[in-house]
């Protein structure tokens, strides 16, 4: 099982390394969306605590959808999915590999775009970045768990790429609510006067919700993925 997961994940990473079809566009996309918010709301650095977390997560969700659409689209283009299904790996390994791949891409995009975000919102780097990375990882895994399952379904629809956001967005709202809340808590503790607290106590609740959400849907997807890929 683990061997199969690693093999597919490694294949996807190598494909990405050669084609650079996903990461580059996603980072630019996040950058552009942050600017969209900036211009639509005429934000200044002071707006950070009010709408900063929302801007950050909106950008990640949209860029994430962009990346998720690629999960199976490239496999379908060249009928590679049939070959993958013939390969001696279980369908759940395929899901897990694709999900981890999406998680990894999202995480890289988040980490690469964080400096821009900090620059635009005048955030100075500090210890608060450590819990922030934890929140970003969990939020990304929520999106990847649900998104990978639905990406397999939406690639076979007349709406194609357009179906994925319709499916993923209503599903992801609970996780979005908690991710934004957690990020807001982290930013509240980013002011120099409060740098003493490395892990604010109020962060535990939203973080555990995100953990539960991603575990629930990863498990559910692993159980159901056989049904999606049958034939």
């Amino acid at each position: 099982m683990i061997k199969g997961v690693v093999a597919i994940l490694w294949k996807d990473l190598r494909v990405e390394w050669r084609s650079r079809e996903r990461l580059g566009p996603m980072v630019v996309f996040v950058f552009l969306i942050i600017l969209v918010f900036n211009f639509s709301f005429e934000l200044g650095g002071s707006a950070l605590h009010e709408i900063g977390p929302g801007v950050l997560w909106s950008a990640f969700v949209f860029a994430g959808l962009f990346g998720l659409n690629h999960t199976f689209a490239t496999e379908l283009d060249n009928n590679c999915l049939d070959a993958l299904m013939l390969a001696p790996v279980s369908h759940s390994s395929l899901y897990l590999a694709k999900m981890l791949g999406n998680l990894l891409f999202l995480l890289v995009v988040e980490l690469l775009s964080l400096p821009f975000f900090c620059l635009f919102f005048n955030l100075s780097p500090g210890l608060y970045l450590v819990p922030l990375v934890a929140v970003l990882t969990l939020g990304a895994s929520c999106l990847a768990s649900v998104g990978t399952l639905f990406a397999a379904m939406s690639s076979n629809s007349r709406l194609r790429e357009f179906l994925l956001p319709l499916l993923v967005l209503p599903m992801i709202y609970p996780a979005l609510i908690w991710a934004v809340k957690a990020t807001a808590i982290v930013f509240e503790h980013s002011r120099p006067s409060t740098t003493g607290a490395f892990w604010p106590g109020s962060l535990t609740e939203p973080v555990s919700f995100l953990l539960v959400y991603s575990i629930v849907f990863t498990t559910l997807a692993l159980m159901l993925f056989d049904q999606v890929l049958e034939d």
Partner: peptide
């Protein structure tokens, strides 16, 4: 039908 059933469960 299978896709719909999967979605019906997840939702």
């Amino acid at each position: 039908r299978r896709f719909a059933a999967v979605l019906g469960i997840v939702a």
